[in-house]
Simulated assay, not measured.
Amino acid sequence: MLKEIYEQPEVLQTCLSHYLSEDHPLSSSSAYSFIPSNLSQIHILGSGTSRHAGLVAQYWLEQVAGIPTRVRSASEFLSAPLPLVANTLTIAITQSGETSDTLAAARQQKNYSRLADTSTCQLIGITNQSESSLARTVDHILPILAGNEIGVAATKTFTTQLAVLACLTVHLAHCFKTISQERSHQLITELQYLPAKIASVLEQQQDIIQEIAQKLALAKHCIVLGQGVNRAIALEGALKLKETTYIHAEGYAAGEFLHGPVALLEPNIPVIAIVMPDQSYEQVINTVRKVKFHNVPVIGITATTIPSAALQILDHQITLPTTDELLSPFLTIVPLQLLAYYTAVQRGLDVDRPRNITKTLVVPES
């Protein structure tokens, strides 16, 4: 797992290089020729970490490209499929291309499309394995190019899934003119800076994360808070803690946490808060203030531009480089991955073989 966390800058660079060309990024890319010209809605299917990548993409696709987007767990989709109308793009996301419930959901959607005679609909897959059952099911594949991921807890495949979805979002926003050309190129530039910024997080924040992990290892429960584009990162961070440390961790939208779940707080239940300098900042910091009122330790994942007054209410802070607020999930997930890893090590657990979990691996023949 640690090896694959540290491979993220390299694989992200490989993935971005595949989708971003030097001369005219995105707009003329043949990778997206399958998209319906009158796209009406997007459905995203996935499980676990892949579903969380889909939730980040939902925020991007709706807020940047202006396209109505719904995300459903693949297993839930089987009994409650999303309504399919003309010009729907369905995206199935799976690391291996062999995840059983995601495959079943994709096949069900394909059959549904045939029965409804919605010939303008498209079904695509985002996967790490271009030669897989998913590839044989969908109309088109967008590879994430992360290389083999052996660790059960997905890390580098999550980051590269985000990269493909971010590039797709910018492409759609450019085509449908929901953002200016200047804004499009600004996002592309920021995407290209991300591998170096992730490398700096891995290099500069390791010691403080290990120190925090020593204390977090004593906890039985943990809360992870995010808001806006980082709401799904709170869910993914909590999942990583559950998978690797066996700590009962729950992720919440920071604002929604105050409407009931706040009753869970006790002084021995740490809270990890993603506090980014974006449009959700005031709501997150307001929730953190209310959390601190209950004498709860707060670990902040922050950026260098956070006001010093806000930092004073945090018991610990992990500071990230600045980036475009839409792209902050690429950075905020990294300390959560490391925190899960080092906390599990502190608890004496086998990080690469967590109990009760199996991972589908597809290793190409040599």
Rank of each mutant, 00 (worst) to 15 (best):
L336M: 10
A199R: 15
V345I: 14
A309P: 00
L162A: 04
Q109M: 15
I357Q: 09
Q206C: 06
L202T: 11
D324G: 03
R355H: 08
I212W: 02
L235C: 12
L115P: 03
T118W: 00
Q8Y: 07
A254Q: 13
V298L: 07
Y342C: 03
S28I: 12
I44V: 12
V288K: 00
E131A: 09
P364T: 08
R231C: 12
A163G: 04
T120M: 00
V138S: 02
S29T: 12
A154F: 00
V288G: 02
S180E: 04
E243Y: 12
T304E: 14
L123H: 02
Y246W: 15
L20D: 11
L314P: 00
I247E: 07
A344D: 07
R353V: 06
L339D: 05
D101T: 15
Y193N: 14
I223L: 11
I333L: 11
F176Q: 11
T322Q: 10
A74D: 06
R353E: 07
T169V: 07
G97R: 04
A273P: 05
S28T: 12
V362N: 08
G46L: 02
G125H: 04
I150E: 03
H171R: 06
G97M: 10
A199Y: 05
L314F: 04
G54F: 00
I274N: 02
Q41I: 09
A310R: 01
Y246D: 15
I285G: 02
I209H: 02
L311H: 05
P68S: 12
S280Y: 09
G97T: 09
Y193R: 13
L241A: 13
A146C: 11
L12D: 09
F293R: 08
P321S: 10
Q210F: 01
T120V: 01
K110E: 15
E62K: 15
N148D: 07
Q109R: 11
E203S: 14
L20H: 13
A146W: 01
R51D: 06
T90I: 07
I247Q: 10
V152H: 00
A273K: 03
Q95V: 12
E190C: 13
L218Y: 08
S96V: 12
I44A: 01
L235N: 14
K3V: 13
C222W: 03
N286L: 08
S200V: 04
R355T: 06
L218H: 11
A163N: 04
F158N: 01
S180V: 04
Q58K: 15
L165G: 02
E131M: 06
L78K: 11
A53I: 00
L16N: 08
P143D: 04
E22K: 08
A80Q: 11
P36L: 02
P329R: 06
A253L: 10
S79T: 13
S73K: 12
G348L: 10
H294T: 03
N230Y: 14
E190H: 13
P83G: 05
S119M: 12
S184N: 06
L349F: 09
I179V: 13
L168T: 01
I318P: 01
P68L: 11
Y341V: 12
E131H: 07
R107H: 11
E211R: 15
E62S: 14
S113G: 04
L239T: 07
L39I: 15
I141Y: 06
P364V: 13
L239H: 08
L361V: 13
H316I: 03
E10M: 13
L103Q: 04
A105V: 11
Q13A: 15
Q95I: 11
L115H: 14
A105I: 15
Y281G: 01
S21V: 10
L103V: 04
T157D: 00
Q312I: 05
T332R: 06
